[in-house]
Simulated scan of single mutants.
Amino acid sequence: MDSLVIFIICAFALGVVIILSKNNIPPKLRRGFAIVAIVMVAVAFCLLVYSFFSMGL
């Protein structure tokens, strides 16, 4: 459970950092970073929803 919480925090933090620093990222890396951040945030959201349902809420 602790590793899940750490992953969720890191995924959302990465998404925020990429959104806030989108002008400083080189154009070649911008699309790759955005795709990785979207995938990580989507997985974190799915794991968060799954953990709520598996706890019996």
Rank of each mutant, 00 (worst) to 15 (best):
V39N: 07
C46D: 07
P26E: 10
Y50H: 00
V17C: 15
S51F: 11
M40H: 12
A42P: 04
A37E: 05
I19H: 05
L57I: 09
C46L: 13
M1T: 08
D2A: 04
V5F: 14
F45K: 03
L14R: 05
Y50F: 06
L29R: 05
K22P: 00
V49N: 06
V41Y: 03
G15F: 00
A42F: 04
G15I: 00
N23D: 10
L47R: 03
S51L: 12
V16I: 08
L4R: 15
D2G: 03
P27L: 11
F53G: 06
S3Q: 10
Y50C: 02
L47E: 06
L20W: 02
K22V: 14
V16K: 13
V36F: 08
F33Y: 05
I9H: 07
V49P: 03
S3W: 07
S3Y: 15
F33N: 08
N23F: 00
V17G: 04
P27W: 10
F45R: 07
I9L: 12
I19Q: 09
D2F: 01
V39C: 11
F33I: 00
K28R: 15
V39H: 03
K28F: 08
V39L: 11
A13N: 08
V39F: 09
A13Y: 05
S21W: 02
V16E: 14
L4W: 08
V49D: 05
M1Y: 14
P27S: 13
V36H: 09
A13V: 10
L4N: 10
D2P: 01
F52W: 11
I6E: 15
V5R: 15
R31E: 13
I35H: 06
A44W: 01
V43A: 15
L20A: 08
V17H: 06
V36D: 09
L47K: 04
F12M: 06
L47W: 04
P27A: 15
Y50K: 07
I25D: 09
N24F: 07
V16A: 13
A34M: 07
F33Q: 08
Y50D: 05
I35L: 15
V16Q: 14
L29F: 07
C10Q: 13
F33E: 03
N24D: 10
I38R: 12
C10E: 15
I8N: 11
L14H: 07
G56Q: 01
K28N: 07
L14C: 07
M55D: 03
L47P: 01
F45Q: 10
A44N: 02
L57G: 09
S21F: 03
V43Q: 10
R30N: 02
M55T: 04
V41K: 03
V16G: 05
V36T: 12
L4Y: 09
N23C: 01
S51C: 04
L14T: 02
I38Q: 13
I9S: 10
Y50E: 06
N23A: 08
F53Q: 11
R30Q: 03
A13S: 08
R30M: 01
F7K: 15
V39S: 13
I19W: 10
F33M: 12
K28E: 12
S51A: 14
R30A: 00
I6P: 01
P26L: 04
V5N: 13
R30T: 01
F45S: 08
A11P: 04
I6C: 07
A42C: 03
A42S: 11
M1R: 15
G56N: 03
F45H: 04
V39E: 05
L20K: 07
I19K: 15
I8K: 15
S21D: 01
K28M: 14
L29Y: 11
M40E: 12
P26T: 05
C46I: 10
V36R: 09
